[in-house]
Design a protein around this nucleic acid. Structure first.
Length: 430
DNA sequence: TCTGGGGTCCTAGGACCC
DNA sequence: TCTGGGGTCCTAGGACCC
């Protein structure tokens, strides 16, 4: 909430910490040869990819996260492309979270490079919120190295803290006081809010809503009639109120789905190649489910054609599964039901949702299934030991192509830091 | 030269059951 | 010989986030 709602109750102080150009900074810290140079961390080198992070030197050329690597190269022909290394970033995230929880257990790991902290109780002991923020910044710098810096926003709630951090970048601290809120609402474009994307922003613009304060012209009831339950949230945001609580890292929700998707290299864009990529993704998904001790009941398939149109669907199973063969055959059936693989398949994705802990599954263990489970367990052990590319069951050809294209996908280590941080943003490494 | 990969949440219509 | 309403599951698809 906005804070200050109760007499005698201390106003809530939320701190939002955002690492500056995170992946790029980590790479520069790790490799002195990259320091002071425009670098871009991106996905696979074999196909055209997007910019995951740009160093501050690269940003000077106008390079931004999200643009294609091709655009980045056009803006700065001598930019250095560095392939992303998710394991490296996760381990640095662990290290800075470990430092933060020395200050308070009320740390929400929002993503691999962002956290929220509730410092209501702790701030005064450290000379106030700003002083605490600066102390955290120098602690992290000492801990992680000079090249890895962070910006910190301070405000009465998460919504405003996330807005505040934009004015703190790079490496600064910015606070929004309760009395600043009306001005902030007048100045902040709706699309700057986390949760309002391009579509919603466009719909709002048709209603004459450009800034957060403009939302105040509409009643909550009206916004609900237009946007559904989301309308309630919009009405609150328009007043600078954020209803979402801080979810501390030790109370993270369970993972809800597990999946993989892959942009298909040119050589495999024909239906048979796409089918092989699908098998590969199902194997990885099944393996990850087993590693987590999970099984899922709904299989989702997503295919993309050369025109970037998506096709696919979902199918519920009778019993939750972690079996890649079941996942694969279900996904194949879905592909068939939706018109087969496109002649030129540019992306394949598979996801297993409605997951439960494997121990909750009482399945009829058919003899054949028991045998297959033993086989899969043995293969998991081999891959754990020698890496993902050590053993390919099906589609040897496709996997060779993928392995050559990507240099091997590396071992998928499931360090369960949090759902959002570990499982998201993982850039395949070369 | 077209646009990666990992997720979450919401809505809507139809089927089915009571 | 006509028809209610609530609950849950399934499928399809959209929007959004980092």
């Amino acid at each position: 909430m906005l804070g200050g709602e109760g007499e005698g109750k201390r106003a809530v102080i939320i701190l939002h910490l955002d690492m500056d150009a995170y992946f790029a900074s980590v790479e520069q810290q790790a490799d002195p040869a990259l320091r002071g140079r425009p670098i871009v961390v991106s996905g696979r080198p074999d196909i055209h990819s997007v910019v995951a992070a740009a160093s501050r030197e690269a940003k000077r050329y106008g390079i931004r996260a999200g643009m294609t690597t091709w655009e980045a190269h056009k803006l700065c022909p001598h930019v250095t492309f560095v392939p992303g290394d998710p394991d490296k970033y996760e381990s640095v995230t662990r290290r800075f979270v470990d430092v933060l929880i020395e200050y308070t257990p009320m740390v929400e790991v929002y993503s691999i490079d962002e956290v929220f902290m509730d410092i209501t109780q702790e701030a005064s002991r450290h000379g106030g919120p700003e002083a605490l923020a600066q102390e955290i910044q120098s602690r992290l710098r000492a801990e992680l190295g000079d090249y890895i810096t962070c910006s910190i926003g301070i405000a009465p709630n998460k919504l405003l803290a996330k807005l505040a951090v934009e004015d703190a970048k790079p490496a600064g601290v910015h606070r929004i006081w309760p009395e600043d809120v009306p001005r902030v609402l007048r100045d902040t474009p709706v699309q700057a809010v986390c949760g309002i994307g391009p579509r919603t922003a466009r719909r709002l613009s048709h209603m004459g809503v450009w800034k957060l304060a403009d939302l105040g012209r509409y009643s909550e009831n009206y916004l609900r009639s237009v946007f559904g339950v989301y309308g309630t949230v919009l009405a609150l945001w328009g007043r600078g109120v954020d209803p979402t609580p801080l979810v501390p890292y030790w109370r993270e929700p369970e993972v809800k789905s597990v999946g993989h998707s892959h942009a298909v290299p040119r050589a495999l864009r024909h239906p048979e190649g796409a089918r092989s990529v699908l098998l590969y993704l199902c194997e990885r998904t099944g393996r990850r489910l087993r590693a987590k001790g999970l099984a899922g009941r709904v299989v989702h398939l997503d295919l993309r054609d050369a025109q970037m149109r998506h096709r696919g669907g979902q199918q519920a199973l009778e019993v939750p599964t972690d079996d890649e063969e079941i996942i694969f055959h279900t996904a194949l059936a879905l592909a068939k039901r939706h018109g087969g693989f496109p002649a030129e398949t540019t992306m394949v994705g598979v996801r297993v949702a409605s997951v439960v802990s494997r121990s909750e599954v009482s399945r009829p263990l058919l003899a054949d299934q028991a045998r297959r489970e033993r086989l899969e367990a043995a293969m998991d052990r081999i891959r754990d030991r020698y890496g993902e590319s050590a053993l390919w069951r099906g589609s040897v050809y496709a996997c060779r192509v993928l392995t050559q294209a990507t240099g091997g996908m590396g071992r998928q280590k499931d360090i369960a830091l949090t759902r959002k941080s570990v499982d998201s943003r993982s850039t395949p490494r070369p």
